[in-house]
């Protein structure tokens, strides 16, 4: 393991200044929220930062607060806090359920929402250090390898799947991310935060190396809206989604007024399904519609040698989730 220096800034301004300074000095940086994944990556030398910026003293990045605009969630809020918070549970159910499905109680106690959203891939080839695109190499080993968990949508040239549970939920809730850099801050809709490998294979989102995902703003929930997170796992705990669906439906008088549907575990980014949303909106939620939504969800999906089973699985999960929210 390479030596690194650890800094514990006290303010957001200091944090981004330190990042900028280190990068300008030619040093590599890493940002630790809960550190539950990062420390393992450092020990296994997937990343080898010169400077590790630990956010633990940034009190301003903690807390969940309600305002007239909705709810503000600090980037350092833990998975456990999110999954237990009464307001999140009642009005933003999909997020509470997604956060509660992450890993184990121990990891949920330290893992942060910003860290979960920005989590690096868990593809076996990447984590075992194969020279794949994500490790700076020139190919994706999963294409002809062990690809049972890899992408069926949006793949190429890398076929990783995005591992985050909370990201699809935040997209389905139309959250916005406050991103703070040394020279500016900006608000980015969650739906526009992630980028496909065909755009930039080295990263999964728009966050710059000197930027912090500081907080998340959830809009007010309109009356009649219900949301849920369905996650299929190989075992019942401590594993990523084989396929997951984050869905928010606003239903009045049996008619779907608004739909937001985002898949996890199937694509290199959380996979937004605007076509499915349009299909649902304005229509009566019933078995027939749910069946069509399921089919539409996997339109264009393609399997590698061992992951085609995820296509009917995704179809079924979308159909079931529509029906469960419409019931």
């Amino acid at each position: 393991m390479k030596s690194f220096s650890n800094v514990n800034p006290k303010t957001l301004q200091e944090t981004v200044f330190l990042l900028k300074e280190a990068l300008q000095g030619g040093e590599s940086v890493a940002v630790a929220g809960g550190g539950s994944d990062l420390l393992g990556m450092i020990k296994e030398e997937r990343v080898a930062p010169d400077v590790l910026v630990n956010l633990k003293n940034l009190e301003s990045l903690r807390g969940i607060e309600e305002s007239t605009d909705g709810v503000r969630i600090g980037g350092l809020v833990t998975m456990d806090e999110l999954s237990r918070h009464p307001l999140i549970r009642s009005r933003y159910t999909v997020l509470a359920e997604a956060a509660g499905s992450v890993a184990t109680p121990q990891i949920r106690n330290v893992g942060t929402v910003a860290g979960n959203v920005c989590q690096r891939p868990w593809c076996w080839y990447y984590r075992e250090g194969f020279p794949c695109f994500k490790n700076g190499g020139d190919r994706c080993f999963s294409i002809v390898g062990e690809n049972q968990f890899n992408a069926i949508l949006g793949g190429g040239p890398s076929f990783i799947v995005h591992p985050s549970d909370t990201a699809p939920a935040l997209m389905a809730l139309e959250a916005r991310f406050r991103i703070v850099g040394p020279d500016q801050e900006r608000w980015v809709p969650a739906l526009e935060f992630f980028i496909l490998p065909e755009e930039d294979v080295s990263r999964e989102n728009v966050l710059g190396q000197d930027e912090i995902l500081a907080e998340i703003q959830l809009p007010q929930v309109e009356a009649g809206t219900q949301s849920t997170y369905e996650k299929v796992m190989d075992r019942e705990a401590w594993t990523h989604a084989v396929v997951s669906v984050a869905m928010s439906l606003q239903i009045r008088g049996g008619i779907c007024r608004k739909a937001r549907v985002v898949l996890g575990g199937v694509a290199p980014i959380p996979w937004h399904l605007p076509g499915v949303e349009q299909m649902l909106e304005g229509n009566r939620v019933a078995a027939e519609l749910a069946g069509r939504a399921g089919k539409a969800a996997v339109a264009g999906a393609g399997g590698l040698s061992n992951n085609a089973y995820k296509i009917p699985l995704t179809e079924a999960l979308v159909r079931r989730t529509v029906l469960s929210l419409g019931a």
């Binding site: 076996w124 080839y125 984590r127 075992e128 062990e146």
Partner: peptide, 23 residues
């Protein structure tokens, strides 16, 4: 244990799945 050309791909407690109490 899943191998690629003799190298183990899932040699960690996360990727090599043993039953949890929920299973």
């Amino acid at each position: 244990m899943v191998f690629e050309e003799g190298q183990l791909l899932n040699g960690s407690l996360l990727d090599y799945q043993i039953p949890s109490v929920k299973d």
